[in-house]
Structures are given as structure tokens and as C-alpha cells.
Write a protein that binds this DNA or RNA. Structure first.
Ligand code: SF4
Ligand code: SF4
Lengths: 133, 133
DNA sequence: GGAATCACGACTCTTTCGGTCGTATTTGAA
DNA sequence: TTCAAATACGACCGAAAGAGTCGTGATTCC
């Protein structure tokens, strides 16, 4: 409960590493995987998601690799987290669409959980990648 | 990821209900279970944990039930959460004792996760039960 | 053309979570 | 004194989520 997934941890480590590079240089998934002892296949998928979201830029082929798409001080951690895991909510009734909580009708704590959700969102949207490099 | 457990949700609903009662009255697990459509056995176990932690007082036997041990404005949500699930951390390396993360040696985001942890703790320790009744 | 790299999805294994069950204990009242 | 109503505890199970692996294909540089 309330635990970050390994995906997000690995993603943060990877993005932080990429952010610490000199601009213009790329780094390969293999290099990051080796450096931090992260399972290669898993890390690869994470980087693919980050690439798909546009947060990092992927360079195919030999001499390829990843680089950052914008300045680290323009990237709140929420962007990274959302790219990897999608929007995360503290309770199922908070996602826009889904209302599949059995006791939703009689629930008395929805508004409180909304507050908690906002505070959690705040944490990730105010911390910038530039703060953690 | 980052989702509250059903136990905590049910616990919050239950404690909030108890807190809304007139002092001196007790309420039974069955009543709460019926009122909010929470599985009885599960709710019972949750209330047992709350009782064990001293947060609620259990009255055995016929005419028994639960009541609050102190004023709702003396109870931060963290107390309820901890009673139900124990101390919760955003990453395994944050719990005092356990260091079973394979990549702990090369990890570069520990301090950032500590910050996040502190902010999360802040959320639950500043919200009081009295605010959500 | 071939090697290095990213891209994608299916799959398995493990852990966590939600929920149930059986049984024991306490207590008030008939 | 007996019984029913209630809490207390732990074991158990099935479902779901999480972590990690594998196979295959596409892109790019040399
Ligand atoms: S309705 Fe109440 S119980 Fe159901 S998910 Fe939302 S908050 Fe949790
Ligand atoms: S060491 Fe790094 S990766 Fe391992 S748990 Fe702590 S933060 Fe997560």
C-alpha cells in the first residue's frame, strides 16, 4: 500500500541518469542496465514508455540510445510517473471514468480521499527532475 | 501503485462512523458492516487491529461494541492507517530495518524518495479525524 | 549485409490483497 | 446457570497486481 512500483523507481533512476549527461550525448538501455544493475528487459520496456510519451527521445540503430527531450527543470516527477504507470489514484472511485467500487453509494470518505489525492499529486508535480540529479 | 488498501478505506469509514456517535454509545461491527455494505469478517478484523492499537475501545459480550478512545481532534489519520497496516513506506529501503533491495548500492534516488516519504507522512499526520466526520 | 539498438506483446512466476472460515473467549441477560 | 451476542485470532484460499523473461520485428549505422 502506497508503495512505488519498481518500474517507477527504475524509471526515475534512468531518467535521472540521462538528465545528468552532457546535452547531445545519448545513452543506451544496456549501459543504464549495467550501471545500476537493473534487469535489462524490464528497463527497456520502461524506456519505451518514456519514449512513447515524448519525455525522452529514442535514437534507433547502432550508436543509438536515449536522450532527454527537454530541460530537467521543465520536468516534474509527475510527468515521469504518468509516462510509466499512467495516472495513479489513491482510490478506484477517483479515476474519471471507473466507478466499480461496490460500496460507492454509502461511502462517507470520498471527499477526504479527494483531498489526499490532491496532496499526493502536489508532491509529484512540484518536485522537478532538476532537483534530483 | 500508491493505492490505499480496502482495509484502510473500510477502517476510515468505520472510525469516522464511530466518531460521529454520541459519546458513551457503542456500535457493533455488524451494524457498521450492514450500514456501509462492508464484508463483516473483514471489517471485524480491521476493528480488532484498531482495538489492539488502543485507538478504539472494544466492549465484549451482549450489548457490546466499539467506541472511540479519545477525541476525534486528537486523532490524525496516520494513527488510523498505522494501526491497520503498520508503518507504510514508498520504498523498501526506507523501513528502518529491511535492506533487501538488490540495487541499493548503486541507487541514486534514495534521498529523493525520502523527501517523498516525508511529504506523504505529512499528509496523513496533519489530517485529523475531526476533519472528516 | 550485418550488428547494434529500440519496439512490442505475450508469457510466467511471485507477492500482495481481499475475503472467508473455524474456533475460542468474554459478557450480559433470561 | 445457561445461552446468545459479541469480540479475538489465525489459518486458509482465490484473484489481482507486480516483477521479470522471451520471442520477434523494425530501424539505423558501418
Ligand atoms: S467509494 Fe469510498 S470506498 Fe469505494 S473507492 Fe471511493 S473512497 Fe474507496
Ligand atoms: S534503494 Fe533505490 S531502488 Fe532500492 S528501494 Fe531504495 S530507492 Fe528503491
Amino acid at each position: 500500500m502506497l508503495r512505488l512500483s519498481k518500474r517507477v523507481e527504475y524509471g526515475l533512476i534512468a531518467v535521472r541518469h540521462i538528465a545528468a549527461l552532457h546535452v547531445g550525448t545519448v545513452v543506451t538501455a544496456k549501459e543504464i542496465s549495467d550501471r545500476y544493475h537493473i534487469p535489462f528487459d524490464l528497463l527497456a520496456k520502461i524506456l519505451q514508455r518514456l519514449s512513447k510519451s515524448g519525455l525522452v527521445i529514442a535514437q534507433h540503430g547502432v550508436k543509438g540510445g536515449y536522450s532527454l527531450s527537454k530541460s530537467p527543470d521543465q520536468i516534474p516527477l509527475s510527468l515521469i510517473v504518468n509516462a510509466i504507470e499512467g495516472r495513479q489514484v489513491v482510490a478506484v472511485c477517483i479515476s474519471e471514468k471507473n466507478e466499480d467500487c461496490r460500496i460507492s453509494e454509502t461511502c462517507t470518505i470520498k471527499s477526504s480521499l479527494f483531498k489526499i489525492q490532491n496532496n499526493v499529486d502536489q508532491i509529484f508535480s512540484t518536485m522537478l527532475l532538476s532537483e534530483i540529479v
